[in-house]
Design a protein around this nucleic acid. Sequence first.
DNA 1: GATAACTTTCAGGTCTTCCTGAAGAGGATG
DNA 2: CATCCTCTTCAGGAAGACCTGAAAGTTATC
Lengths: 185, 185
Amino acid sequence: MKPVQHDMPAPLLQVEEDFIALWRGMSSLWGISPTMAEIHGLLFITGAALSMDDIMARLRISRGNVSMNLSKLVEWGLVKRVHKRGDRREYYESLTDVWEMFTLVAAQRKRREIDPIVTTLRQCRERLSPESLGAEASRPEAEAQRRRVQDLLSFLTLVDSLAQRFFESQRGLRTAVDLLAQEKE
Amino acid sequence: MKPVQHDMPAPLLQVEEDFIALWRGMSSLWGISPTMAEIHGLLFITGAALSMDDIMARLRISRGNVSMNLSKLVEWGLVKRVHKRGDRREYYESLTDVWEMFTLVAAQRKRREIDPIVTTLRQCRERLSPESLGAEASRPEAEAQRRRVQDLLSFLTLVDSLAQRFFESQRGLRTAVDLLAQEKE
DNA sequence: GATAACTTTCAGGTCTTCCTGAAGAGGATG
DNA sequence: CATCCTCTTCAGGAAGACCTGAAAGTTATC
C-alpha cells in the first residue's frame, strides 16, 4: 500500500496498516463491505481529511468503489464531507470523537437489527393473542410459543432502552465535563 | 416449507415462518450464515427437539448443510444435543432461556470482535509509545495517532466491562429470584 | 459553448460464501 | 461380517456480494 506521506515514520504507517486490516477483518461481523470498513479505518486512524484520489491511492481500489462506499459512510454519519476553499475536490474525514462515533453505530444497529426484530415480534405476539386465536390460544403449544416470543421481546426492549440510556447518560456527562473544562480556561 | 406437525394451527405455523425468515434476514448483520440463523430460529421458536431429518424437511435444505451449521450452533452453546432412549438419531434443541442465550451471544461477540480489536489496539499503542518510537514519539502526528488509539481502546474496554457486569448482574439477580420462587413452593 | 475536473452510476467480471449431492466414517443390528 | 442407519466431510457448482473500468452526469473554468 502506497503511503500518503513519505516523511511519516514507518511505525506510524505500520500502525495505520494494522488498524485498516483489523477494521477490514471486522467487516463481515458488522454487516458492512470490506471496502467500507477499510475506508473508515483509514480515515479514522489518520485523522486526516482525504480526497477520493488519496483514498484510491492508499487502498489501491477503484474510484467507483471508493465513491459507493464513501457515500454509505457519509449516510451513516460516520464520515463528513469537508470543503477546502479553492479546491474543487471533496475531502472526507472521520468523526474523531469515539463516543459520537459509537452512538451513530448503535443508532444504525438499532435501525437495522433491533427495530425490525421488535416490529416482527410484536406482530407475532399479536397473532398469538386470544383476540386473534380465539379458543386455540389456550393450547399448550400456543402458550409456549407466545411465551418465547414475549421473552425475546422483553429482553430486546430492555437491552435497547438500556443502550439508549447509556449513550444518553454518557453524552450528558461528557457535555458537563466539557463545560467545566471551558470555564477553567 | 413443509410443516412438522399437521395438526398445528395455521397461525402458529405462520409465526414460525415469520420468525425464521426474520432470523435469516439478520444473519448477514450477525456474521453468520443464513442457514445457521434459520436452524437456530426454527429450534428456538418451536421449542422442540428436532432431528436432522426434521430440520431438513422443514427448511428444505441438504443434510450436509444442516450438519455443518448445527455443529457451529452446538459449538457456540446455543443448541444442545438431546438423546432419546431407543432412538439412534441425534436430536437438537435450542436454549429456551433468553438471558442464557444472549449471554452466549455476547461471549461469542467478545471473542470474535472485542478481543481481537483490543489486542491489536494494544499492540498499536505499544508501537507508538516513547519506549518504541524514541524522540519521534513527541511528533504531533504520533501524539495524535496515539490518542486516537487510546480513545478507542478506552471506549471498548469500558463497554466490554459494562457488558460483562450487566450479564453477571442479571445472572445473579435471576438466580436470587429463582431461589426465592423455590422457597415459596 | 467547449473543455476539463471531479463524482456517480452502470454493466459485466471476479471472488467468496454457501449449498448440494455424494462419498466416507462410525456405530448399531442381525 | 454384512448391512443398515445416521452423521460428517468433501469436491464442485451456484448464487450473490463486491469490484473494476468505463460511461454518464455535474459543475467550474476559459
